[in-house]
């Protein structure tokens, strides 16, 4: 082999691959209805776990927001005066785990209670203010997870001035636990449907091999290696996977668009600016790469099993 042919080898190799990739793509388009249906089945199978994944991500955004926004309500003993409370607030502001402390004086608490509760007249009948002073404590962001906030709650509860310390995170935690279960379920579902995609592509490729049996025999007669014969089928599987992935992406994107309006309505009712998020670019890339790889694996399995059975006679 001369140097020039040696140098041209990679170029020819690329040329051949591009040719095979394009011709297998052309084959799919020639038989567009059947190919589309196969891709659609793959797309729907992939869209299901991907859609659930998007929903879960959104749920986590919501519950995550609540979690990190958790503040601790420290109700002081009735005997603690506003001045003492202010001093304590000042002291706590220096605490390394506390971001900010808001003091709600007894009078202010009473005024707010009067305004919001509707017990204004009943409160008039009381001689003195029954409400304690309240410190609303915002933990530093490093300490604002459910677990670390809980530690802070315990510490604050030990203060002599403290009466009740409240961290209302129980339901957030429950939601998180449910989310973890749901994530697991989505993972199981994704595995099963991924397997289904493998089978769909494998079966499609098997039929394709049967249809092209004569061609495979003739090419083998002429001296084609198994790799050469395998190549167009692998590309076909790759295209099926890729197009299935694109359809899955479109299905999820369309669904999210359809849901966005009603969800933001609901969010408005809760006075939240929550916006339903769809797949980001990284997710889309991962989806397309994953589905293309599934296609490759599916066709590889089918080709490995069925191609060796075709020998020229």
């Amino acid at each position: 082999m001369s140097l020039s042919t040696l140098l041209r080898a990679p170029q020819i190799w690329l040329q051949r691959h591009a040719q095979v990739a394009l011709s297998s793509l052309g084959r799919l388009f020639n038989n567009s209805l059947a190919s589309f249906m196969t891709c659609a089945v793959i797309g729907i199978a992939l869209a299901l776990p991907i859609g659930l994944h998007v929903i879960l991500n959104n749920l986590q955004t919501i519950s995550g927001g609540w979690d990190s926004g958790a503040s601790i309500s420290l109700f002081l003993e009735q005997s603690v005066s506003d001045e003492q409370a202010a001093a304590l607030a000042q002291k706590l502001r220096l605490h390394q785990r506390i971001e900010s402390v808001e003091l709600v004086r007894k009078d202010a608490a009473l005024a707010e209670f009067r305004r919001l509760s509707g017990f204004a007249e009943a409160l008039e009948a009381l001689d003195n203010n029954p409400l304690p002073a309240l410190l609303v404590i915002q933990p530093k962001s490093d300490y604002s997870t459910a677990e670390t906030a809980q530690l802070l709650v315990r510490e604050l509860g030990l203060l002599p001035e403290a009466d009740i310390v409240q961290l209302d995170l129980q339901w957030v935690r429950r939601l998180q636990a449910i989310t973890v279960i749901a994530q697991r379920a989505v993972l199981v579902l994704a595995t099963l449907l991924g397997l289904a995609v493998l089978l769909i592509i494998g079966n499609t490729i098997r039929l394709e091999i049967q249809n092209r049996q004569a061609e495979i025999e003739i090419t083998k007669l002429i001296g084609a290696t198994n790799a050469f014969i395998r190549r167009p089928f692998l590309y076909t599987g790759f295209w099926y996977g890729l197009f299935g992935g694109i359809i899955a992406w479109l299905l999820v994107a369309i669904s999210v668009t359809l849901l966005r309006g009603p969800v933001s309505n609901l969010a408005n009712l809760y006075e939240s600016a929550f916006d339903l998020s769809s797949l980001d670019w990284m997710n889309i890339l991962a989806l397309l790469a994953g589905s293309a790889i599934l296609g490759l694996i599916g066709s590889w399995l089918a080709v490995g099993k069925h191609l060796s059975a075709v020998e020229p006679s």
Partner: peptide, 11 residues
Amino acid sequence: ALPLVVSGLGH
């Protein structure tokens, strides 16, 4: 062309 394609000859 098939035998030449199979053995990877240039275009």
